[in-house]
Design a protein around this nucleic acid. Structure first.
Length: 679
DNA sequence: ATCTGTAGCGCC
DNA sequence: AAAGGGCGCTACAGAT
């Protein structure tokens, strides 16, 4: 049965639906403890578009509320009750409810559950839509084409019918979905995600204020630098390849001179690696490098490749400067101004909860259907000029907290490495110095760790790269490539590292096997989040074929004589995949723990905002991985900072059990720069 | 004109 | 056997 709540005088009860009052609808809905929820809106943006319909109900009946003629706030108490509201991608509906002053408390998001079930699978391998779920779980067809009609049409019967269907089947779909979650031991994980979606939606809804004048000034500077570097590159070429140079006609193929008698003009498109590669090779640079994804050798003008060869040609540093400038102009310029919402005056991005296989959120993207683009707010350049453009509203203070050495502490705790933990908790707290001491015998053995930063800054700096590389599965070869030291020395450093940090070694050895034993990477033993090995069966099949009689004999025979044959390729593929998963298996739990700290921090913080009715007053602005930036009225800013600090520490205690994961109130002021944003 | 894949680089 | 994890955006280049 479908009920319609509307004050539209032209609508009457039909065979399909019955018109009832708000009070009648609440009386009907009141007994439900689990309620399907959906909304239909004029568009994607809660600031410029209106909420059109609110649908509530279950498989027996559905209530459609016409929000254009009925005050949706009459349902506020109901929606903020302890009932659990079922929905699909509720982050979207939440933002429209927030805009209407309604803040639901208890949710179950089938879309997030579907993401959890398919975490680890490449995008597009499995549809996560409600329509697909209707198909897969109930074998029914849910018609979503009505979505496009709803913006333009009145409340026609088919619109009402289909809008009702969106809540009608939710309970049955989610019931079946729950069985899958239970089988895969993901019921705790979905509880976390269902709580996290609320503060995450709130963060999108709040957005962040950009100081347009500062941003335009920055753009001007960036553009000038860009123009200058392009000019410098062109001049360099003209200067080094005079008109009579044989290089011109033969190797640059007319790209330098524009006509026979014109002024010299460089026609190289510097943003085209394809055009830069032949020039740089002619200048004597070695551009060969290994493609990390394919493992094949290729030519590249990547900074990593050319930076060590700066002495080969004086164009190299100019080109590096150019690339940095091009990136800034292209990515961090006008698009940010275009993103300022005309109503809120702020930039609202789109976050993807569970965007990464590690459970990290991602930011950005575009919705082609509505021609909507979002900027990525999680990779803003970490320099003062850029970050200083993001400010608090007048009367507010910007509050910035970040976890202190989040991944180092989490890794030490998760690996339970006593040596690292000891240094963190009782020693210098500076792991880079400890690593330097362990790695370099030339540092006298009686040197206190705390003095190394001052006495051996270079060795300590090298150790950072070593640490990072090894912690995430790299080995001597990684150090050799990263630090540019002889392979032999790299081996010595690696061995020293591993014998000093036995807990880490043990952790890594365990992690290298665990994914294969389970068929997934256990991201967090506490929440049960998992990244599935999407090609696990394929890899098992390949491994089985290795056991066929004579396989390795045949392989050894073919390896040199026919390296492209199926057998050799299969072996190569298998070990490449295996190696990738081993490294993921080492890294993911650390990354996931950081991600969980952020989730719990935000959940706790939002609880406080709810309890103290600070919606729209305390704004959560931007949350890059290990920091939370919010703004609050000056009067309460210090109190809010303290609350947020406690939330972050409390979250840290759950996931970092062997040492204290602390947070820094790194900044609290208005329209000035957070220290930690400057590097 | 529009789509897709790749290279390169911004962040943690 | 291969040799450091996770993302998104912009430009180019080639295909349609």
């Amino acid at each position: 049965m479908i009920y319609l709540v509307t004050a539209d005088k032209e609508l009457f009860t039909t065979d399909i639906y019955k018109i009832i009052s708000v009070e009648e609808s609440l009386a009907l809905l009141n007994p439900l403890k689990i309620v399907g929820l959906d909304t239909e809106t004029e568009g994607l943006d809660p600031w410029t578009k209106k909420l059109k319909l609110l649908q509530l109900g279950n498989r027996n009946f559905q209530v459609i509320i016409d929000c254009f003629t009925v005050d949706v706030l009459k349902y506020k108490d109901y929606l903020e009750s302890d009932r659990t509201f079922l929905g699909w991608n509720l982050k979207f509906d939440l933002k429209f409810l927030f805009r209407n002053g309604i803040y639901p408390k208890s949710l179950y998001d089938g879309y997030l559950a579907e993401k959890l079930l398919w975490l680890g699978y490449p995008a597009g391998m499995h549809s996560l839509s409600l329509k697909a779920a209707g198909n897969n779980y109930l074998n029914i067809e849910l018609d979503k084409s009505v979505r496009s009609k709803i913006t333009y049409s009145d409340l026609t019967t088919d619109v009402i019918q289909y809008s009702a269907d969106d809540v009608k089947y939710l309970e049955d779909i989610i019931h079946k979905q729950w069985k899958k979650l239970y089988e895969k031991n993901l019921t705790n994980a979905i509880k976390v995600e269902n709580q996290f979606v609320i503060p995450l939606a709130y963060c999108e809804y709040c957005g962040i204020k950009l100081d347009i004048n500062k941003w335009r000034a920055k753009m001007k500077v960036d553009q000038d630098i860009f123009n200058k570097t392009v000019g410098n590159l062109n001049n360099w070429v003209i200067e080094h390849f005079p008109k009579d140079s044989t290089l011109v006609g033969r190797n640059l193929q007319g790209d330098l001179w524009d006509g026979f008698d014109a002024e010299p003009k460089c026609k190289i498109n510097w943003s085209s690696p394809k055009q830069v590669i032949p020039l740089f090779e002619k200048l004597g640079l070695n551009l060969m490098t290994k493609d990390r994804a394919t493992g094949d050798m290729k030519k590249s003008v990547d900074t990593k490749v050319i930076k060590p060869q700066q002495e080969v040609s004086s164009i190299v540093p100019i080109y590096m400067e150019y690339k940095a400038a091009a990136k800034v102009v292209g990515t961090y310029g006008q698009n940010f101004i275009d993103q300022i919402n005309p109503i809120s005056g702020r930039i609202h991005t789109n976050f993807t909860q569970l965007g990464a296989d590690t459970t990290r959120i991602t930011s950005g993207g575009k919705d082609k259907s509505n021609n909507t683009e979002y900027v990525n707010l999680l990779n803003l350049p970490a320099n003062a000029t850029t970050r200083d453009c993001f400010v608090a509203e007048p009367g507010n203070k910007w509050i910035s907290l970040d976890y202190k050495g989040q991944e180092t502490y989490l890794m030490a705790s998760i690996a339970n490495d006593k040596a690292i933990l000891k240094e963190l908790t009782e020693g210098s707290g500076d792991i880079h110095s400890l690593v330097a001491y362990m790695s370099y015998p030339e540092i006298p053995r009686d040197t206190p760790i705390k003095d190394i930063k001052k006495l051996y800054p270079e060795l300590r700096q090298n150790s950072k790269g070593t640490e990072f590389g090894i912690n995430y599965g790299g080995d001597a070869n990684t150090i050799y490539i990263n630090n540019g030291i002889p392979l032999e020395e790299a081996h010595r450093v690696y061995d020293a590292y591993m014998s000093a940090f036995k807990g880490l070694k043990e952790y890594q050895n365990f992690r290298r096997k665990d994914w294969w034993d389970k068929g997934y990477i256990l991201l967090s033993p506490l929440t049960g989040h998992k990244a599935f090995i999407y090609d696990y069966e394929e890899l098992q099949e390949i491994q089985k074929s290795f056991k066929e009689p004579g396989f390795w004999e045949y392989y050894r025979e073919m390896k040199d004589s026919a390296p492209t044959c199926e057998t050799v390729q299969k072996v190569k593929y298998f070990f490449k995949r295996k190696s990738t998963y081993e490294k993921k298996s080492i890294n993911f739990p650390i990354q996931a723990a950081g991600s969980m700290c952020l989730r719990y921090s935000m959940i706790y913080f939002f609880e406080y905002i709810r309890k103290n009715k600070l919606f729209d007053i305390v704004k959560i602005c931007i949350t890059p991985y290990d920091e939370i930036n919010c703004e609050a009225p000056e009067k309460i800013a210090y109190e809010i900072a303290k609350v947020l600090y406690n939330c972050m520490v409390k979250a840290g205690e759950i996931f970092c059990t062997e040492c204290k994961l602390d947070a820094d109130i790194s900044y609290i002021d208005n329209n000035k720069l957070p220290d930690h944003w400057v590097h």
